[in-house]
């Protein structure tokens, strides 16, 4: 009797397994489809997109849309392509990520190894700051940037991104250092090691993974930001996401879909490469940001 039912179960499960594989593969196609559409159509001449089929491979392969998106496409009033904006984004991301990561590491260190009265309140306030809708700080931020003469500059954007990234970087390092044995810190303290010596010699050497997680998280968020970029950038500091949106949504002229797709891939490439090279750390960052374990 039981053998028979097991038999049914196994036969059933072969059928069920087939369905599971089909569903999983269909979803893989769903997730890959937009990327496929972007890549394929960025390599076609414009006529082929208009008359042909978006899902078809190019009949006539061309890299002209890529060259145009990079260096000659009309963005706003200037036919300069996305290149200068790509550079703006790099100049904005690198210092902002470095600043927020370093401060986050020090904050995490203090909040776990040099606890003081009220440290939980300090941490709670920094944590809550991660989740505010940035609309609430747009007007005063614009005001402060204007008063300090940083409006429309890359420096201004760096500061804004570094400050509003502090909550998350502090959270990451705090949770990581929480698990680090405090006895080691106390022992070093008794041996006369200073605050910074302990950080540099004892915590930093084992912080590799969390630094990678934090840097990837900050890099992805700041590179992909649109709200701050569109609100606070000036003529010479427009980041790539804003330029891409200007390229695609400009109402004048012919819509060069192939150039739009090439531009979109260009904008996505840095974060995609980071994801492909170090996906494990990327996922860890996402999880750490979501589940405050």
């Amino acid at each position: 009797m039981s053998a028979a039912s097991q038999d049914v179960a196994t036969r059933n499960s072969i059928f069920v397994r087939a369905i599971i594989y089909v569903v999983l593969i269909l979803f893989a196609i769903y997730y890959l489809l937009p990327l496929y559409v972007m890549v394929v159509n960025s390599l076609k001449p414009l006529d082929e997109i208009r008359q042909g089929n978006m899902l078809a491979l190019p009949k006539q392969w061309t890299i002209a849309p890529w060259l145009s998106a990079w260096s000659t496409a009309q963005i706003g009033v200037q036919p300069v392509g996305l290149k200068p904006y790509f550079i703006n984004s790099v100049l904005m991301v690198v210092p902002a990520v470095a600043l927020s990561t370093i401060l986050g590491a020090l904050n995490g260190y203090v909040l776990t190894k040099w606890r003081f009265k009220g440290d939980n309140i300090v941490f709670g306030l920094m944590l809550l700051a991660c989740f505010i809708p940035f609309q609430i700080v747009l007007i005063p931020s614009a005001r402060i940037l204007g008063l300090t003469g940083l409006a429309g500059t890359i420096t201004g954007l760096v500061l804004i991104h570094a400050i509003y990234g502090l909550g998350f970087t502090t959270l990451f390092f705090r949770n990581y250092y929480e698990a680090f044995p405090t006895e080691l810190v106390r022992a070093a303290q008794i041996d006369g090691a200073s605050f910074f010596q302990i950080f540099r010699r004892i915590l930093l050497p084992s912080s590799g993974p969390i630094i990678v997680v934090t840097v990837i998280w900050q890099f992805t968020n700041i590179w992909n930001d649109f709200l701050f970029g569109s609100s606070f950038s000036g003529f010479n500091s427009i980041p790539l996401t804003v330029a891409l949106n200007n390229l695609v949504n400009s109402s004048t002229g012919v819509k060069e879909y192939n150039v739009h797709f090439a531009g979109a891939i260009l904008a996505a490439l840095p974060t995609l490469i980071v994801y492909i090279v170090s996906g494990r750390y990327f996922v860890r960052g996402l999880m750490a940001g979501a589940v405050k374990g």
């Binding site: 893989a28 997730y31 997109i49 992909n224 891409l244 949106n245 879909y257 904008a267 996906g279």
Partner: peptide, 29 residues
């Protein structure tokens, strides 16, 4: 499979928006 399901999280919403805007566009999509 897992990385394929997750990669969209690495993209900017602007990139996602451009891809879907044209893919759902009646004229060409």
């Amino acid at each position: 499979l897992r990385p394929i399901y997750l990669y969209p999280m690495a993209l900017s919403f602007i990139v996602t928006g451009v891809a879907w805007k044209w893919f759902l566009d009646p004229g060409i999509g």
